[in-house]
Design a protein around this nucleic acid. Structure first.
Lengths: 116, 116
DNA sequence: ATACTATGTCGTATGTTTGCGACATAAATC
DNA sequence: GATTTATGTCGCAAACATACGACATAGTAT
């Protein structure tokens, strides 16, 4: 035992995990890169560019939308997906914070493993 | 139709997704923050700090280890877990690249959604 | 109106993740 | 050598993720 179980996870930790989860699949990373590279908002063309069925790509798009990282706008018959830059800035800040902490960690190197 | 299915996913996209997956759970984010905050390599104390059973924490540690983000060294009866700073630097670079791309995207704002 | 197109939802199959208690291992202590 | 302590592995159950084809919807064009 010796279990404390003090607090649950902070909102920051949960948000970071949520964002990480949204990027935790190569297809979704590829979608984001696609949307970032094109200035025009492409729609179902995304599906054509990926090695997956159209419906599967739709699902990945829905996941990214649920995380808030992209938004879709109906334009007649097609749908435009765009990066939600505001949330991307938040993600950038959250991850940067963690990375800075992790990289600055002085205790253990890769070779000497840990000297405790 | 009109499907091209040109290439599968790049190694970069897969590695990014792998790292994101490792951070896609609040418990693992919390573990990383713990390891980053303490200069000493704590071991099973991690389990005591989290609202989860000891075995569950071990599993999360194994996942982080499998992704290469941490490494464990046996020190007598206890085990020391440490951040693998080399991989964290790689993660930092990979994510920074994606974030920069995403944030620099000029086409769509959060309000006007997309003007295509 | 009819046909066509782009898109999303549903159901389904298969695999993965999460969480946990019971057990195994292995160093330290008595 | 028996006991305690720290840790990991196993097997299980419930939940979730992934992928896809069949279907529904809703604009557009003939």
């Amino acid at each position: 035992m010796t279990h404390a179980k003090t607090a649950a996870f902070t909102e920051q930790q949960q948000q970071l995990a949520r964002l990480a989860k949204a990027l935790a699949h190569p297809a979704r990373v590829a979608i984001v890169e696609l949307l970032a590279s094109k200035t025009t908002c492409i729609s179902g063309d995304i599906a054509a560019e990926l090695p997956l069925a159209r419906t599967t790509v739709t699902q990945h798009l829905q996941e990214l939308k649920a995380a808030g990282l992209i938004s879709g706008t109906i334009d007649g018959l097609t749908v435009c997906y765009c990066l939600n830059t505001a949330l991307w800035r938040q993600a950038q800040a959250l991850f940067a914070g963690l990375f800075t902490q992790a990289v600055a960690n002085p205790a253990c190197g890769p070779a000497d493993a840990c000297g405790c």
